[in-house]
Structure formats: C-alpha cells, structure tokens
C-alpha cells in the first residue's frame, strides 16, 4: 500500500486543517492521504489503516480499491485514546471497538463502483476528524449497462 502526498498537504497545513485543535478541532471531511488496496491471489482486496497519535484521523483517509468485492481491512489504533470504526458492509454495517494501542480486522463486502464513508461513532470522533472513505473503482458488468452507444463523461 502506498500513500500520495503533494502540495495539497501544504495547502491544508497552511489553512490549519491538517491536525487537531488548529483552525478547526479536527481534520475536515475528505482531506488527508490517499492509499491503495492490493488484491491477493484469493481475490480479497487488503488494505491497512491507522489512527495516529493525537491526530484523530484515519490514515490513509481515502483507500481506493480496484473494484467491488470482498475486503480485508486491518485497523490499527496508535492513539492513546479509545476509538472505534463503524464500517459499511452489505448485510449490515460492521463495528469494531479499538482501545488504545490495539489492532483488529474488518472483513467487508461492498459493491463497485461506489464511494463509502465510515467513521468512529464514539465521542463525536466523526465530527473531530475520524471520518474516512473506501472507494471502490471499476464498472458495472456489461449485462447491467444500457443498450446505447458510448456516452460522454465529465
């Protein structure tokens, strides 16, 4: 898994939106690093996300998956406070409790293409920055596409 960083990070830092208790108490929704999942030979897409100390963020904040399907997400809480993660999943959302300095797993199934938010639903963590996204790429199967010539996209 890799993370990308560009001058956007500098812009966020200058605005005081890249950490706790600066311009805002937490990181703004949709900011942060981007990571990519890796698909194993078993077809499961794996990624790792961390909660760094005193930042109240999931890092990377956005994880991109090549397509919809089964996901195995390793979640590590490096913070000195307790958090959790309520994650989207076909069937019912899944929740994991993450005490200080803990590590767990979430096995999820999500349709692609589609973008999903998740967050820590304790102590207004979501409002303070602990929100992040899982983005499933790809296209729907041909059988689900409209019978028409290719159309322009934005």
């Amino acid at each position: 898994m890799t993370a990308t960083a560009d001058e956007r990070a500098d812009v966020l830092h200058k605005a005081g939106l890249d950490g706790q208790n600066r311009t805002a108490l937490g990181r703004m929704l949709g900011t942060g690093d981007v990571g990519y999942a890796e698909e194993g030979a078993d077809g499961i897409m794996r990624a790792e996300v961390r909660i760094p100390e005193d930042q109240l963020i999931f890092s990377p904040s956005i994880i991109v998956f090549p397509h919809g399907g089964d996901i195995e997400l390793t979640i590590i809480n490096d913070d000195k406070n307790t958090h959790c993660a309520l994650l989207p999943h076909n069937g019912d959302p899944k929740i994991i409790w993450l005490v200080n300095h803990s590590k767990g797993t979430a096995r999820l199934n999500l349709d692609g293409p589609g973008a999903y938010w998740y967050g820590s639903t304790t102590g207004n963590d979501e409002g303070r920055g602990l929100t992040a996204a899982l983005v499933m790429g790809g296209e729907v199967p041909d059988s689900a596409k409209l019978d028409r010539p290719p159309q322009p996209r934005p």
Partner: peptide, 17 residues
C-alpha cells in the same frame, strides 16, 4: 511499546441489538 491489544474482528452492528 508493547504489542498491540487484539481488537478482534469487526462484527455486524445488529449483533449489538
């Protein structure tokens, strides 16, 4: 730092209802 505490596996939200 000690080893991570095992947080286990995420469970369906409805199991806590």
């Amino acid at each position: 730092m000690t080893d991570y505490v095992d947080a286990g596996e995420a469970v369906a939200h409805r199991t806590l209802s």
